[in-house]
Design a protein around this nucleic acid. Structure first.
Length: 215
DNA sequence: AAAAACGCCAACCGCCTGTTC
DNA sequence: GGAACAGGCGGTTGGCGTTTT
């Protein structure tokens, strides 16, 4: 489908938002709510497409955003959730009040991913120990190389698994073989962890945005 | 001091899903 | 049923500040 119609109609401004544009958007949404995003540019007097207005509000202007750097607890939670959910940033962000999917994604790509790539077990174990109030040496047991020597994985803790069980939208990521480790971590874990082969094959061909699961 | 390399993060792109007609 | 549209999401890019050489 490509570009949205709203992005093509009138000439839309691109690039960084000016303080004046931010003010217009904040004033409009705090007064009237966002309603239909595609109508916001006209109503608020902005030369941006509705989609960009939505993104600007969600990622930057929303009053409940936390901002600032991630705490060790938040970092550990992100690592654990990522071990279960994979790159589902919006799902991960739901468990981090005041954080956006974009923030979580940027944090992962800039700070955490390289620790996995360099197999920095001590740094990762330290985050896990903070999150779960367990000694670092115990936490190190949950950070391990799996069958693929090029990948470092983290077994999710029971507390994180429990919180996901109660999340109505939760679907385990079938692309992550480490989920099989979760069964030994938490024997009560109810979901199947091994993905059907056709899902894995499909994933290797190219990206699939939201894999479908059966429970 | 200047240039190059690096890192962060806001913003954009393109695809998917859900809804409406 | 299917076309058109809007919202939502993940991957990627580019600008800019910081650090290193």
């Amino acid at each position: 489908m490509g570009h949205h119609s709203c992005c093509n109609k009138q000439k839309v401004k691109r690039g960084l938002w000016s303080p004046e544009e931010d003010e217009k958007l904040i004033n409009h949404i705090t007064t009237y709510g966002h309603g239909c995003w595609s109508s916001i540019p006209t109503l608020a007097g902005l030369q941006r497409c509705g989609k960009r207005c939505r993104l600007r509000w969600i990622n930057y202007l929303r009053p409940d955003l936390k901002r600032g750097s991630f705490s060790p607890q938040e970092a550990a939670l992100i690592i654990e959730l990522h071990s279960i959910l994979g790159n589902r940033w919006a799902q991960i962000a739901k468990h981090l009040p005041g954080r956006t999917d974009n923030e979580v994604k940027n944090f992962w790509n800039s700070s955490i991913k390289k620790r996995f790539i360099t197999h920095d077990v001590p740094a990762l174990a330290s985050l896990v120990s903070v999150q779960n109030s367990i000694p670092p040496e115990e936490a190190a047991g949950f950070v391990s190389l799996n069958a693929n020597p090029n990948q470092l994985h983290l077994s999710p803790s029971a507390s994180v698994l429990q919180s996901l069980v109660h999340d109505a939208d939760f679907k385990p990521n079938p692309m992550l073989p480490l989920l099989s480790n979760a069964a030994s971590f938490d024997p009560s874990w109810p979901f199947p962890f091994v993905a059907p082969q056709h899902d894995l094959d499909h994933h290797q061909n190219k990206k699939i945005s939201r894999p479908k699961f059966e429970q």
